[in-house]
């Protein structure tokens, strides 16, 4: 079984060769500043940049098609909901009201449209960034990256260990469920609904016991190899920092500063073309 939870694709572009922590740093800070900012010009800039990076990392459309479609669907749903629940949000933010058509509370205004376009852009800008990080970073490097960004290595390692055990738990669940059916709980379609439900409940206890036994053994195995002994640990898969990594860190900070500079020109997080 391979651990391809993140959809990691083993390739050798300059982005793949970057240290995981640089990519995580870039992804986190650039996403945050793009989420905070409502300056269309800045967001478009970052969007172009992230699309270029997506192309640079040799990610194929087939790999991300499903995720992108799901996100587009949910974003559209979200935009519609915002309009339904607060159609005057744009007016409140920009302080003017230019009605395009309709009247009353649900009148479509230029301000609302502009506000929602900004929101949509923000969603679309972070998706390529997240995908680049997940697809180009070896899962083995994930914990190391978190740790280098200051998260305690115990927590970082637990996260990656939990991810690694998900397939195991799924497997155990299947086996236990079938063993319980063999004892007489009819969970298949031949059983009545109530019987199927009580049957399902009885899978939980063995699953918990199996998992606890596993956790007990694994934590003993980890302790027997000194996990938790020192304040610091090194990471076998950690890539050494290169010049490119330094450039990524510098670029990240520059982008954040540009984002902040746009705040300064606008006088707020919002770029207001209606003034």
């Amino acid at each position: 079984m391979n651990n391809n939870l993140f959809g990691y694709d083993h390739q050798n572009t300059w982005i793949h060769r970057l240290s995981g922590s640089s990519k995580l740093f870039f992804f986190l800070l650039v996403s945050i500043i793009a989420m905070v900012s409502y300056d269309t010009r800045f967001i478009c800039l970052v969007l172009v940049l992230s699309l270029v990076l997506l192309q640079q990392s040799h990610i194929k459309w087939a790999q991300i098609r499903l995720v992108v479609k799901l996100i587009v669907a949910f974003s559209l749903l979200n935009l519609v909901m915002i309009y339904i629940f607060s159609p005057e949000n744009g007016v409140a933010i920009y302080g003017t009201k230019h009605v395009i058509f309709g009247s009353g509370f649900y009148a479509l205004t230029q301000e609302q449209l502009f506000y929602e376009i900004n929101l949509a852009l923000k969603y679309f800008v972070t998706v390529p960034l997240a995908l680049i990080f997940l697809i180009t970073t070896n899962p083995s490097e994930f914990a190391a990256s978190l740790n280098r960004l200051g998260v305690s290595y115990r927590i970082s390692y637990s996260v990656s260990l939990a991810l690694r055990y998900i397939p195991d738990v799924q497997n155990d669940y299947q086996e236990i469920s079938r063993a319980q059916q063999a004892r007489g709980y009819e969970i298949s379609k031949k059983g009545k609904l109530m019987a199927r439900l009580t049957g399902a409940v009885h899978i939980i206890m063995p699953l918990i016991f199996t998992s606890i036994a596993k956790i007990d053994t694994i934590s003993q195995a980890m302790e027997l190899r000194r996990f938790g002994r020192n304040k610091k640990r090194s990471w076998y898969m950690q890539r050494p920092m290169t010049k490119n990594d330094d450039l990524v860190w510098v670029a990240t900070i520059v982008i954040v500063i540009i984002g902040g500079w746009f705040f300064h020109i606008d006088g707020s997080r919002f770029f207001n073309p209606f003034k």
Partner: peptide, 28 residues
């Protein structure tokens, strides 16, 4: 340990063998 499968922590074999050294903060 009794069951080798239960003692694996690393995602790859190499990381698993290095696990003890990682905890000793051994240089990469």
């Amino acid at each position: 340990l009794q069951n080798a499968n239960d003692q694996f922590v690393g995602l790859t074999m190499a990381e698993d063998m290095a696990f003890g050294m990682e905890n000793d903060d051994t240089p990469v």
